[in-house]
Simulated assay, not measured.
Amino acid sequence: MAEENNTPTPPQGFIRRFLALPTDSVPKTIFVAVSVCLVASIVVSAAAVALRPMQAVNALKDKQINILQVAGIYDPNQDVVEAFGAFEAQVLELESGAFTDAFDPASFDDRAAADDPATSVALSDDPAGIGRQARFVTVYLLRDEAGAIDKVILPLHGYGLWSTLYGFIALEENGNDIFGLQFYEHAETPGLGAEVDNPRWKALWKGKKLADDSGALQISVSKTAPAAGAEYHIDALAGATLTTGGVHNLVNFWMGESGYKPFLENLKAGNL
């Protein structure tokens, strides 16, 4: 009679026990889910890092297109970089209303300057809802064939209903007549506040005036025209009261004493 083998079976390791589990077991399901998430996050992170330079280039191109559009010289058939070469970029010191050579306009970052305590100020009176205001901004000049200023393009931003709206306002050489206004970044409600992008509403800005003959700021974005007259009034966006109020506040803030008024006074006086 053969002897029985009483040698104990060695215990299986963790990996073997895991592999021996049914495919639809809870541990295997969790393992697969975590593995897929981990691989996906690595792929997304790698793609984000690899595409960051391209995203920066595309963002700059979009900004340049918006400047060309608000100035009325955008041609989709022309190279954007070539067309943008018509503009003269200058870094402006807001307080003095004069250009400064302390920064290179080609590399100066307006948003970074607004976040840096060394180049910005915290606002106590903040109708535009921006928190901090940069003391320096990049402005764009468009000159005619004789070299005289034809238009100035000024960046502005402020809070609407859900987001900060970033855009540009184009002024004629007198610093008072509006040629156009355009926002290139916001997250307002589609069909309501997002109508700031509607060409018909943007067209309402052309030919309006900022201030009256005494220099008092009169520009208004509202349901009814101000007492000063229709030449200072832009109709409110239908169903978007808070976005409309935000646009009104940001335009008046940036065109006022705390914004571009010193620069516009220098422009009118021919001191640039």
Rank of each mutant, 00 (worst) to 15 (best):
W162P: 05
A211Q: 13
G191L: 08
F183E: 13
S222E: 15
R132N: 13
A216P: 04
L192A: 13
E173N: 15
F136Q: 14
I234G: 03
K206A: 12
P226S: 11
A203N: 13
G131Y: 04
G207P: 06
K209V: 01
R143Y: 06
I153D: 06
Q182D: 08
G167Q: 01
G193F: 00
G215W: 03
A148R: 15
A227Y: 05
D197W: 00
R200W: 04
A194W: 01
R200G: 10
H157K: 15
G229I: 06
A227I: 03
T164A: 08
T164V: 07
V139Y: 07
G193D: 01
A227P: 07
R200S: 15
L141I: 03
I130W: 05
G207I: 02
I234C: 00
D212M: 05
F136T: 08
P190C: 05
L181T: 01
E172P: 05
W162K: 14
K209D: 10
G129V: 03
Q218T: 01
G193Y: 01
T189E: 10
R135A: 10
A170L: 02
A146K: 15
D150G: 12
A227F: 02
A134T: 03
G215M: 04
L171H: 05
D197V: 09
F136K: 11
E173M: 09
A225K: 15
W205H: 09
P155F: 04
Y140L: 07
G131C: 11
E195D: 14
I219T: 09
G229Y: 12
L142I: 04
A236F: 11
L181E: 02
A228F: 04
G191D: 14
W205D: 06
S163G: 14
L154H: 12
A228R: 15
G131E: 08
Y166A: 03
A170Y: 00
L192T: 10
G131F: 02
